[in-house]
Design a protein around this nucleic acid. Structure first.
Lengths: 253, 253
DNA sequence: CAAGCTTGTTGATCCAAGTCAATGCGATGG
DNA sequence: CCATCGCATTGACTTGGATCAACAAGCTTG
């Protein structure tokens, strides 16, 4: 795996059992600047720690939840990578998002106590389980947490507006570029290179997300490579000319 | 206007000034079973009444808010019809939703205190202004309101998943049918006919929402009419065979 | 009520992306 | 170490929807 892992702090076999609880705390998690506890004071974060006890391992290909599952918890991605997808009656599926460390999934379940989409790990991953009832309860006591929850949901709405714009108004090549730049930005926020991307999904999954066929994704990438804007080798993409890529989106070619 | 108005309870020129506050109350609003106060007890609803004082008239074509505007309030549509849209740098726009009585708009602004889309009235409308700060404050005291706010945001996320499915995985004809059935259901929930629809948007706006061109919308409607599934006359649509229309979506043709 | 908009319909043509098919290439496992 | 399998690429051909264009049908407005 060519990508560095952000999580080197915690030896897998911590020999003091007591360390387990410390291990599952937001307070000393390196994602705390990105994840649920943004905007919380040290005190407040400790109160959140008390309910974020459970971590869960999800292996590549496993479902975190499925459409129809009862909703109990949100989950924050700690390591790894997920896709969420919705299904049409005849089996067609639409990937609605890709989710990485520090992002919260499961918001769709709050409304009617059932999940309305599937979440699948695209690589071996670890998530923090956030029991919704307790989270909601605490958020009525801790204003910053209340705000943060609203903010997370609102941001998800805004993100989806962006996807709708992409699906409804862009051509295939633009969609691919928009996706790559979005991924680049999210990786940069986490301290990774904004130029060297390792795609965690197949061309088919990416195509589903972008509303095009896998061959179209492949051709779009080849075209961008031919134009000298990036290098592709299977799932590794190096963005060679970020300004030019951004310009492709700024004005419609 | 061929559509009945749901609001016949309140004479425009109420002669007792005191009635104004009563007028702007959720407690005696006929939309209370659909709108913000769903799930609230009578007592709780009265507490919400105290912050939902302001109504605002928005004329056809007027903006309720614009991208970049500072965010202060959510708004609940009381009468009328709105579209929300996002813009691309080069001017292309994507309609992200159509909003009718009882629906709450402006959730996109919570995340970063600025609106990220435009909301425009498609007919003369009236909205209830819900000052966000006070709403958030009250929701920390009134648990049912807290739950309801989360539910509204979650439902919006789920709605958008549906639009992504539509934009990413359906063909033009299916998109039009999905839209009509969705509108039909929402009208039925409000006590209107599920068969007689009056579209409030142009073919172009509908096309933008559906990710196709206006001519394609027009052709799809003509095709459905030729097949005997509905009648179209400009903006009036009568659904003649709801089961058949639903079947078009259930299995891919 | 005629002139001029805006909106909607329909036809003819074109092209971006879909479909179908062959090939390549890395990983995995017997 | 070779066979297999899943994933990706590329080419040839097709097609659904876009584009361009003409026209119709309501509305405004003078």
């Amino acid at each position: 795996m060519s990508t560095p892992t952000p999580d080197q702090t915690l030896p897998e076999g911590a020999f003091l059992q007591g360390l387990q609880s410390l291990r599952a705390a937001c307070s000393n998690c390196n994602l705390r600047e990105l994840c649920l506890p943004v905007g919380l004071s040290a005190d407040e974060m400790q109160r959140v720690d008390e309910l974020v006890r459970t971590r869960r391992q999800v292996l590549r290909g496993e479902h975190l939840f499925r459409t129809g599952d009862a909703f109990h918890s949100l989950v924050a991605v700690r390591t790894g990578f997920f896709k969420t997808k919705v299904l049409l009656a005849d089996g067609r599926e639409q990937v609605t998002g890709f989710h990485m460390a520090g992002e919260v999934i499961g918001l769709d379940g709050i409304g009617n106590e059932r999940h309305t989409c599937d979440a699948v790990a695209l690589e071996d991953s670890e998530v923090c389980v956030l029991p919704y009832g307790r989270l909601a309860g605490l958020s009525r006591e801790v204003e910053a947490l209340h705000r943060r929850l609203h903010q997370i949901m609102s941001s998800e709405i805004v993100r989806e507006h962006g996807v709708m714009l992409l699906l409804g108004s862009m051509r295939a090549g633009e969609r691919v570029v928009a996706f790559l730049l979005n991924l680049s930005r999210r990786l940069a926020m986490r301290g990774y290179s904004e130029r060297d991307l390792h795609l965690r999904m197949t061309r088919e999954e990416l195509g589903s997300y972008l509303g095009v066929k896998l061959e179209t994704v492949s051709r779009a990438l080849s075209k961008l490579q031919a134009d000298g804007l990036l290098e592709v080798s299977r799932r590794n993409v190096r963005l060679l000319d970020l300004p030019a890529l951004r310009a492709l989106l700024a004005k419609s070619e």
